[in-house]
């Protein structure tokens, strides 16, 4: 049972390694989006400090969105997805492996890059810590819910725009709690409640999203 999970995870990580330029593109996108904001709103340090958590979260969210098509589309065109669906093991297992691989190759690099961007916005060290924690707890929901959206829009023309329309409204609560965690920490009320909600959301998404995703994939190849 576990072997399918591990095989798929290993293969997707290997593919991500052979395609490692993709990760760089995602990271550059994350950086450039965040850097656009000072040009738009002005480089006043206090203003930048205020908007930093929101800007970094929005940038992370958009970077994740743009990388979502990678989760299933190549396997869909190659026919690998069909073979996975014909595997005797439950589809939830390998769906989870693919989403985990996406999270490891997209969200984790973003989390690693976030402190450098936080410096550009003059965030304090402890606020950056809270930001990283909120990203670590919140991005799994992005990958899981986004995986469902990616599976639903698989192979459709205009799939990228459609995917954005489907998943962005669902991402709003994660943005609220993610950026809100840093704000709450800075205002002195403490970020515990926000972080716990993000963690709880991740667990709930972990329990539900793979099923929806597997069902959507089955429909996509039919």
């Amino acid at each position: 049972m576990l072997s399918v999970f591990l095989e798929v995870l290993r293969r997707d990580l290997l593919l991500a390694w052979r395609n490692r330029a993709d990760v760089l593109v995602t990271l550059s996108f994350f950086t450039i989006v965040a850097c656009l904001f000072p040009f738009g709103v002005g480089a006043e340090p206090n203003l930048l400090r205020t908007i930093a958590p929101g800007v970094l979260w929005v940038a992370a969210l958009l970077a994740t969105l743009l990388s979502l098509h990678r989760v299933f589309s190549q396997d869909h065109t190659d026919g690998v997805l069909e073979q996975l669906l014909l595997s005797p093991e439950p589809p939830v297992l390998w769906v989870l492996a693919k989403v985990l691989a996406h999270w490891l190759t997209t969200a984790v690099p973003l989390v690693i890059a976030a402190p450098a961007l936080a410096l550009l916005f003059d965030m304090t060290q402890s606020a950056t810590g809270v930001l990283i924690l909120s990203l670590l707890l919140g991005t799994p929901i992005l990958s899981l819910l986004g995986g469902v959206g990616a599976a639903l829009t698989l192979g459709l023309r205009g799939g990228g725009m459609l995917l954005a329309l489907l998943v962005l409204p669902l991402f709003v609560p994660i943005l609220i709690f993610g950026a809100g965690a840093v704000d709450a920490y800075l205002s002195g009320t403490g970020a515990n409640a926000h972080l716990m909600l993000l963690g709880g959301g991740s667990l709930a998404a972990l329990a539900l999203a793979p099923w929806a995703c597997a069902a959507a994939l089955r429909i996509a190849v039919e």
């Binding site: 469902v148 639903l152 489907l166 669902l170 609560p173 959507a216």
Partner: peptide
């Protein structure tokens, strides 16, 4: 948009159903 983008009506039906259910779970959270 999703149900209209899918040409095969059976696939559109099923994909729409999944999306509506996922959305309904998220509405109170939102």
């Amino acid at each position: 948009a999703l149900t209209r983008a899918i040409e095969d009506p059976r696939r559109a039906d099923k994909a729409g159903a999944i999306l509506a259910l996922v959305g309904a779970v998220n509405v109170p959270i939102i």
